[in-house]
Amino acid sequence: KKRTSIEVSVKGALESHFLKCPKPSAQEITNLADSLQLEKEVVRVWFCNRRQKEKR
């Protein structure tokens, strides 16, 4: 499966949402994916990866 490159503006939106809520619910992920026009899975994985980055 190909990697999804996320635009800078979208990254900013994801980042600001992450600061408010690092573990969004499935519903929040769906809403966020719809508003940013990304697949739910891409948003879910982004949050997962971002939480791991926070641990490092």
Rank of each mutant, 00 (worst) to 15 (best):
I29Q: 02
S9F: 05
V10N: 08
S9L: 07
A26F: 05
E54W: 03
T30R: 07
K53Q: 12
L36N: 01
E41C: 03
V42T: 11
A33H: 03
K53R: 11
K53I: 09
L36M: 08
L19N: 13
T4K: 08
C21M: 05
L19D: 07
S9I: 05
Q27P: 06
K55T: 09
S35K: 15
V10F: 05
W46L: 03
K20W: 04
P24C: 02
L14Y: 02
L36H: 04
F18M: 00
R56W: 06
P22I: 03
S5R: 13
E41Y: 03
S16T: 11
N31P: 02
F18R: 00
E41A: 05
N49F: 05
C48I: 14
V43K: 03
G12T: 14
E28R: 04
L36C: 03
S9C: 06
S16D: 13
Q52F: 07
A33G: 03
R56E: 15
V42Y: 12
K55V: 12
Q37R: 10
L38Q: 03
E39D: 15
E28C: 04
C21Q: 15
K2G: 12
H17S: 12
Q27F: 06
L36D: 00
L14D: 02
E54G: 06
Q37L: 07
V45N: 07
K53P: 03
L32K: 00
E39I: 01
P24Y: 00
E54D: 14
K2R: 10
E41F: 00
E41G: 05
V45R: 09
L36R: 00
T30A: 12
E28G: 06
E54T: 05
P22A: 09
Q52N: 07
V10Q: 14
V8W: 08
V42L: 10
L14S: 01
V42K: 05
S35E: 12
A33S: 11
Q37T: 06
F18L: 00
K53M: 08
E39H: 06
L32M: 10
E41V: 01
L19A: 12
V10P: 04
T4G: 10
C21Y: 04
V10H: 14
E54P: 03
K23P: 02
N49Q: 13
K11T: 12
R51I: 07
N31H: 10
Q27I: 05
F18P: 00
E54Q: 06
S16R: 12
E54K: 03
K40H: 08
N31E: 13
R44W: 04
V8T: 15
S25Y: 03
E28V: 04
C21R: 04
E7R: 11
K20R: 11
V45Q: 14
K23L: 11
I29N: 00
E39M: 04
R50Y: 01
V43G: 00
K40C: 12
N49A: 08
